Simulated assay, not measured.
Amino acid sequence: MQELQLSADGRLRHLITLAGLPRAVVERMLDRAEAMRRDSQGGARPLDLLAGRTLINLFFEPSTRTRTSFDLAAQRLGALVINFDIERSSTVKGESLLDTIHTLEAMHSDAFVVRHKESGTPATIARNLRSDAAVLNAGDGNHAHPTQGLLDALTLRRHVADFSRLSIVICGDIRHSRVARSDVDVLRTLGVRDLRLCAPPELLPEADSAAFAQCTHLQNFDEAVAGCDAVIMLRLQKERMEAAAIPSEADYFARYGLDAARLARAKPGCLVMHPGPINRNVEIADAVADGTQSLILEQVGNGVFARMAVLAELLERR
């Protein structure tokens, strides 16, 4: 995959996955996100780095945070943004995805932000481009969500000095989660050694999953959260699982929901994160989601700066 993502001089060409991406590249994007925050005065001052560039948002699945933050990120960098309307496009007439991409390429598009239910779709597009446009994966199936991984790392980095000392729990629907995969990829790259995955057995990764091989797998959330520095809760992705994969929502919350009593088992000041959207009182209690240890809305804000950094990294030199 790296031959697709990186140019010969090590610059980012596309962003499909964080798996295997060199630490220097990851840290360069995180540093640049902080510079974007500073230079834009927290988003109040537009930058002009990508004036004349055109970005196409291609979302084949619903999205609030990712699509809006890519839109804002591109606009704050001076790019023109087209939110491609899938339902009113020729794809409903039978046009293939690649024919649609080639048509948009012919209009001199510079970047495609792609969300798709099928794993591997952004990589397929990148391999079949006829121009030097960039492809950014905004979430493909249960494979990867690289900019979510970057914004989560950015959020943690603003609160902790040394990733190697962290104990982090990821709890919830890990088997179907592209966020969990990208978070594990980036946290491993940044030096986190104690990564704990917690879920019912039906929602833990499959035994042969290489992406999660070096993590500790647990089914008892009370045990998993004990002494941890941060908890990343995940949404139950009912659209990707069989109906019988979990018990009732009340039973799930009793065993795997993050409430104040469970949070008290973690280290004092344990950070609480969730990529959203939240199913309140199923995955996380209201008091915790809205509490002083919650970074959930900070994650949303950081998403804009992380995506500004990626867009600038990909497009500024073209």
Rank of each mutant, 00 (worst) to 15 (best):
Q2I: 06
A8N: 13
D9W: 10
R11T: 14
R13W: 06
H14S: 09
L18M: 02
L18V: 04
P22R: 06
A24P: 03
R28C: 06
D31L: 14
R32K: 11
E34H: 08
A35M: 12
D39C: 11
G42T: 07
G43E: 07
R45D: 07
L47H: 05
L49I: 10
A51L: 12
A51V: 14
F60A: 02
F60K: 10
P62S: 08
P62A: 11
S63E: 03
R67Y: 04
T68A: 15
D71W: 01
R76D: 08
L77F: 01
L80S: 15
D85P: 08
I86V: 15
E87Y: 01
T91D: 06
E95F: 07
E95V: 07
L97I: 01
D99K: 00
I101E: 00
A106Y: 03
V114T: 05
R115V: 02
H116M: 03
T121A: 07
A126S: 00
R127P: 11
N128V: 05
N128L: 04
D132S: 15
A134M: 09
H143F: 09
P146F: 08
H159Y: 07
A161P: 03
A161Y: 01
L166S: 00
I174N: 02
H176F: 09
R181W: 09
D185G: 12
V186W: 04
R188P: 08
T189K: 14
D194S: 15
C198W: 13
A199W: 03
E202F: 11
L203W: 09
P205K: 02
A211R: 02
A211L: 13
A211I: 14
F212A: 07
C215W: 01
N220D: 14
A224Q: 04
V225Y: 05
C228D: 10
C228W: 01
C228R: 08
C228K: 09
A230F: 06
V231D: 09
V231W: 05
E239V: 05
E239K: 05
E239R: 09
E239P: 02
A243Q: 14
E249Q: 13
A250K: 11
A261G: 06
R262D: 11
A264Q: 10
A266M: 11
G269A: 10
V272F: 01
G276F: 00
P277N: 12
N279I: 04
N279D: 11
A289Q: 01
D290A: 15
T292L: 13
Q293F: 02
L295A: 00
E298Y: 08
E298S: 12
Q299G: 10
G303F: 11
A306S: 06
A309I: 10
V310A: 15
L311A: 12
L311V: 09
A312Y: 14
E313I: 03
L314A: 09
R318D: 01
